[in-house]
Design a protein around this nucleic acid. Structure first.
Lengths: 177, 177
DNA sequence: GGGCTCTCCTTGAACTTTAAACAAATGGCC
DNA sequence: GGCCATTTGTTTAAAGTTCAAGGAGAGCCC
């Protein structure tokens, strides 16, 4: 799907080395993966845009804040938890601030630092929209999979995720993971 | 992760019905899913942006065109295959046209219609960059999963994808799926 | 303290995506 | 033929994301 099918099997490897093409079976897996992931993310994005007035990623930010100690997190910490760049987070928080769901606060210890703080209004939106969102996730994913499949899915995605975590990520931030 | 943990189990269902919250275990699965999918897509996006000068979705469009009969597809057909809106496709093709990798062609049968055609140059870029891309996919996914896991992953994602396919999609387009 | 490097976060421009509105062509129906 | 709903693809503007650059404070070494 994403790449030409199996390889024209060669004898000795050439200089740039014969690419390890995907087999037909691997291609099928890969195609379903991309298709499922795309459709799911688009679906949840539309659901949240409609019901909560924000994209999926922004919703995820509010959730992280809601779970944090005083409903607040340092920008860098939030960025790492949400797996997005600080730049993207800056823009996102600016938008959420404009919507009144998050406010910024200076960090007393470090004058460079900023906290993103979930406002009462933000918490309210989250409470209002969480049920609908969980239901959407359930209908799209959990309702359709057996207990075994759910377990597999978790393991598989954990493996993939951990493989892509920049090795040093969080190594020096003990309070992460 | 995406939603508060398990439910304050109620006796009788309330009016808007007690939300079917995710259990802790489901939450873990869901968190790894989102995290893995996000990291993987970002990773491949960066890989292709760096090596091919285009985002992952655009690369996917070139692949679809390369696999199509005369390296060409109607806009609507391509949009359905790639699971994107026609609007998005219009913009994408405009960009790819500017890069010289795709050209538009009028449809003789239907004056509204347009074909997107993969140019020789486009095919060349694809050939150049496919090996690197497959390798990236392999390293991030297939090299890390057992045969069993690969099979599970395919099945699971197929189930999710098919559940989200608008039911009528392609029903009237027999040449699709 | 002075100088150096690194970290924290923001900014602006370029690019991509979304959503809504639209023109043109088709196809069916009378 | 004439009308009307639908399909096809594009366009516009607003929203979101990426990339490279930069200001400002912290940390360290002398």
């Amino acid at each position: 799907m994403k790449a030409p099918a199996s390889a024209p099997t060669t004898g000795s490897p050439a200089s740039p080395q014969e690419p390890r093409w995907l087999t037909d079976e691997e291609q099928r897996v890969w195609r379903w993966f991309m298709e499922g992931a795309t459709l799911l993310d688009d679906h949840l994005d539309r659901q949240l845009q409609r019901d909560a007035g924000m994209p999926h990623v922004y919703y995820g930010l509010l959730v992280k804040l809601a779970e944090a100690p005083r409903r607040r997190l340092r920008m860098t910490e939030l960025a790492m938890l949400a797996k997005i760049t600080r730049s993207r987070l800056s823009h996102a928080i600016a938008r959420l601030e404009k919507s009144g769901w998050v406010r910024r606060e200076d960090c007393p210890d470090d004058k460079r630092g900023q906290f993103a703080v979930l406002t009462d209004e933000g918490l309210h939106v989250l409470r209002q929209t969480a049920p609908g969102h969980v239901e959407a996730v359930r209908q799209a994913v959990f309702d359709r999979l057996s207990a075994e499949q759910q377990k597999s899915l978790g393991e598989i995605m954990r493996i993939i995720a951990e493989g892509l975590q920049p090795a040093e990520a969080g190594a020096d931030l003990p309070w992460l993971r």
